[in-house]
């Protein structure tokens, strides 16, 4: 029999893990092409803010969702213009993109702070609801993005490892020179990876404002973009491992919320830190690992052949 605490944590893990997973999948795609986007946090914020605003204005969360996805893609395209075409430093550009995202999302979302919106609809198949300990909890009562999270992870994995395009993206991330020698254009592939990765990041942001909280608040992502970047490392750039990672971190977040809600004696400040401490532990444990599967060309700028 499951205790209410465990059920709560499990349900929360899936809900807050959803946006982490989409963000991680997006960043995995981008990093596989050899680009580090430290601006992910900013992209998430823009997705959350635009998604919320469009939903508040139109009253339709699906239009909001689409707008968020588009915003994510455009934000990454802007980043691509900087680092792929202008060959700017990726780390500096990423941080600049993050602060740009902070500012722009605050500006876009400001008029609608406190607005009440209809979020993404949730449903639970009847046969699952009929299970005895499920009916009383929020378990399996999910929106479309959550239901699709696992299939999307599988899709990203399949595209990366089983298709011609994915092979090209991975080749560019490992060795742009060799990819170029095979007749591919590294810049085109990186732009495509950035675009799709941006769409996924936009959806991740929208899930926060359109499903998880149903509000918009400045800096509501609270470091999820950076946790996702750590999760990419944790999952060794593999979309399937990312599922486990997202659940683990979602669980850490859910656990601390549940403990706080139940009036735990542990200081809430310490509980708030849990996901971030977990992030530090992951980076620590994975640190010098030689089996680290980072793409060999990650973060390096390709200046052309020869």
């Amino acid at each position: 029999m499951m205790t209410p605490l465990a059920l709560g944590v499990l349900a929360g893990a899936v809900l807050s893990g959803t946006s982490l997973l989409y963000a991680t999948l997006g960043e995995t795609l981008v990093e596989r092409s050899g680009i580090v986007n430290l601006g992910l946090e900013g992209v998430l914020l823009m997705g959350a803010s635009v998604g919320f605003t469009v939903t508040a204005v139109t009253g339709n969360p699906w239009i909001g969702l689409a707008a968020a996805a588009l915003t994510g893609g455009l934000a990454n395209a802007l980043f691509g213009w900087l680092v792929v075409l202008r060959k700017a430093n990726q780390l500096a550009s990423g941080l600049a993109m993050m602060f740009f995202g902070f500012g722009l999302s605050a500006l876009v979302g400001a008029p609608h702070v406190g607005a009440v919106i209809v979020g993404l609809p949730k449903w639970r198949p009847a046969w699952l609801a009929a299970l005895p300990w499920v009916s009383a909890s929020t378990l399996f009562n999910y929106d479309l993005l959550t239901w699709l999270a696992l299939p999307v992870a599988l899709l990203v994995w399949w595209v990366l490892f089983k298709t011609r395009w994915g092979l090209g993206v991975r080749a560019v991330g490992e060795s742009p020179g060799a990819a170029y020698a095979s007749g591919r254009n590294p810049a085109v592939l990186q732009f495509q990876a950035l675009g799709f990765g941006g769409v996924l990041a936009g959806l991740a942001g929208a899930h926060l404002s359109l499903s998880l909280t149903l509000t918009w608040a400045e800096y509501m992502t609270a470091g999820r973009g950076f946790i996702a970047i750590a999760l990419v490392i944790f999952s060794k750039w593999n979309p399937l491992r990312a599922v486990a990672g997202a659940l683990l971190f979602g669980g850490a977040e859910a656990l601390q919320l549940q403990l706080q809600a139940r009036g735990s004696l542990i200081s809430p400040f310490i509980l708030d830190m849990m996901p971030y401490v977990l992030t530090l532990l992951v980076l620590l444990a994975w640190g010098g690992s030689r089996r680290l599967a980072a793409p060999a060309g990650l973060g390096r700028t390709f200046f052309g052949s020869e």
Binding site: W165, R170, A171, A179, A296
Partner: peptide
């Protein structure tokens, strides 16, 4: 050698195939 160490033999060869289909036939 112009090989990518992190990829498999098959993938390195596939990169240079002239008739590579959209979905790899591993």
């Amino acid at each position: 050698f112009m090989l990518i160490p992190a990829l498999s033999v098959l993938e390195n060869v596939a990169l240079f195939l002239k008739d590579l289909p959209l979905v790899l036939d591993q």
